[in-house]
Structures are given as C-alpha cells and as structure tokens.
C-alpha cells in the first residue's frame, strides 16, 4: 500500500512538471508574448522593456522556465489587469475560491441524492419504461449546453415567476458578516439566519444547472454498476439464503456497486470546474468560474494563469486522492 502511494506521488510530481511546462508554453504563445500578456495594451515602451528585463526574456529558455517556476512557487503571478484591477492575481483566486466550492458541493449533493436512488431503481427495473426514460433523459441532459440550461432556469424561476433571485451570491440589502467566505456557512456560524437563507436561495438555480452533467454521468455509471452486481452469484446466494430485500440491497448490492460510483463522483470535479465557468457567468455568481470567463473576456492573463493552473492542480490532486481511496476500497487495484 505504501509503495502504491509513493508511486502515485511520483506520478503526481511528473504530472505537475509537465503541467508547468504546458503552462509556460501557453503563456509564451499568447498574443504578443508574455509581456503584452502581463501588461495588457497599456504597456509603455519603458515598462515593456523593464518587464522584459525582469522576466529575463533575453536569457536562454531553460533559465526563463526556472524563473517562471520560482515565481509560481512563491505565488507571484502578477497583478490582475481586468478581473479586479490592481489586485494580486493569486488573491483573486483565493477570495473567489469559497464561492465555487460552495456551489460545487451543493451541485454535487443534488446530483448524488438524485442519481444514486434513480440509478438503482432503473437497474432493478431493467428494460422498463422508467429505465428507458431515465436513460434517454440522462443522454438529453448531456446534449443540453450547460449555459443554455442555466438561462432557461433563470428565465422561468427568476425572471418570469420571480421565485428565486436571478443573480449574485447575496442580496445587497443584507448586511452579513463574512468569516469564512462560504456565505451559507457564515450565516449559520454568526447566527444570521436571514443571510444564510438568502445565500442559500441564491445557490439553488446555479447549483441545479451545474448539477446536470454530474447527475447524468453518476446516474449512468451507477445504473450500469448495479446491473453488473445484480448478475453476481453472491447476490443470488444472498437471496437464496432468504435474506430480506433491504439487507440484500444495502449490504450486497449497493456496497459493491458504489465502488466505481465513488470514483466517478470524485472525478466530476473537472466537469464542475468547467461547468462553473458557464453557470457562474449566467448567474453573475462571483466564483472562480466567473473570474475565468471575465479573464477571457478582458484577456487578464495573470489571473487566467493562476486559475487554470489551480484548476488543473485541484483536479490532479483529487484524481490522486480518488485513486488512493479506490485502492483502499478495492485491493485488486494496488497490484495492477
């Protein structure tokens, strides 16, 4: 087990190295090169020359790369020139991260609580109208562009019927204290129930839109996995022994069927991050997704650089944790 973790840790190291090289290449291939990218169009000849010098652009490539790496490790990615003018790019990431985490957790909760029971029922009634209907529904869910779904939800629930707020994280009329940056949690911690409830209401629509992709994926994996397990001999044995249906379901079917599902859930982080870019933009929800969209719009490369690197890093690390968790649950993986 330790050897497995060490090997995966080494792979993580290599992955981060390749990622940093890709990011370095990306930054150098931006229109106008890294100087224009970092300064924007307002760069004067003097400041351009100064930054060229500071970045060491006349030095050999490997030296430039090492400098880039050093700056990245120190968290120095430059100053934002679009998303939040004048702020350190890394701070833009840090202040906006809680919003996206809050939204993603909520979206994932919706997806999981719906997809797992539905996947089980669909598999149990394999071939029934419910099964076919939900499979087709999940395929349609993947075919709908996320931002369009977000717009439709916003149009009906917020604009036409006025049931839920159309944008933002919290109403401006609410004067809430912020401790952690997780607005719902903040409201609960400080006992400001109206603030917590208000933030929660702001979360509902974006979370539903964002949950559509993980829902479809988790549903289909869970359904296929339950179908596989239902065919197993030990399930037949359990039934033949006369075990109660709920016991068979909980202890024999779901416990085994959930192994691939747990992996999938962890890996939906990637889809959530990409989906957050679109959903947060539609709902003007101030998370890292909206910062990314704004960054692309304003060509704010310092911020984009941080956000893309962090997004990939989070995804790679979650991947690794899921891998280790997988190996803990299923010993066969370790020897592969």
């Amino acid at each position: 087990m330790l050897r497995f973790v060490i090997r995966r840790g080494l792979q993580l190291f290599i992955a981060m190295f390749v990622l940093s090289v890709l990011l370095f290449v990306w930054l150098r291939s931006l229109p106008g090169g890294p100087v224009t990218a970092l300064l924007g169009e307002r760069g004067t000849p003097e400041s351009t020359a100064a930054l060229r010098e500071a970045l060491g652009l006349d030095e050999p490539l490997h030296v430039q790369y090492l400098r880039f790496l050093q700056r990245a490790l120190e968290g120095d990615f430059g100053i934002s020139n679009g998303v939040l003018r004048g702020a350190e790019a890394i701070d833009v990431f840090l202040t906006r991260l809680p919003a996206t985490i809050e939204l993603s957790i909520f979206a994932l909760l919706i997806a999981v609580t719906l997809a797992i029971p539905l996947g089980y029922v669909a598999a149990r009634r394999h071939g029934s109208a419910l099964d076919t209907g939900s499979v087709i529904g999940s395929l349609v869910g993947v075919a709908v562009p996320v931002f369009f779904l977000a717009f439709v939800l916003k149009y009906f629930f917020a604009i036409r019927w006025g049931l839920l707020p159309p944008s933002g994280r919290q109403s401006v009329s609410i004067d809430a204290t912020h401790v952690t940056g997780f607005f719902v949690l903040d409201g609960i911690l400080t006992g400001e129930w109206d603030a917590a409830w208000d933030s929660f209401r702001h979360l509902i629509l974006p979370a539903i839109a964002l949950s559509s992709i993980p829902f479809a994926v988790i549903f289909r994996i869970n359904r296929a996995s339950v179908l596989d397990v239902l065919d197993e001999d030990y399930v037949r044995t359990a039934r033949a022994k006369g075990l109660q249906a709920p016991v068979v379901r909980q202890r024999h079917v779901m416990r085994n069927a959930l192994i691939p599902v747990v992996t999938t859930i962890g890996l939906q982080i990637g889809a959530l991050l990409a989906g957050a870019v679109l959903t947060e933009t539609v709902f003007n929800f101030q998370g890292i997704g909206q910062a990314l969209a704004l960054g692309f719009e304003t060509r704010d490369y310092p911020v984009l650089q941080v956000l893309i690197m962090m997004a990939a890093l989070i995804y790679i690390i979650v991947n690794l944790l899921v891998d280790i968790a997988y190996a803990v649950i299923d010993p066969r993986v370790r020897t592969r």
Partner: peptide, 17 residues
C-alpha cells in the same frame, strides 16, 4: 497530463491564445 486538465477548460485556454 492533458487528460487531467478539465477538457472544456483546456479548450477555453487554447482558444484564448
């Protein structure tokens, strides 16, 4: 490594170049 970058995010980044 390319597979470990969320694919839509990678498409956005490439398009921004």
């Amino acid at each position: 490594v390319m597979l470990s970058i969320p694919s839509l995010l990678m498409a956005f980044s490439i398009a921004a170049v």
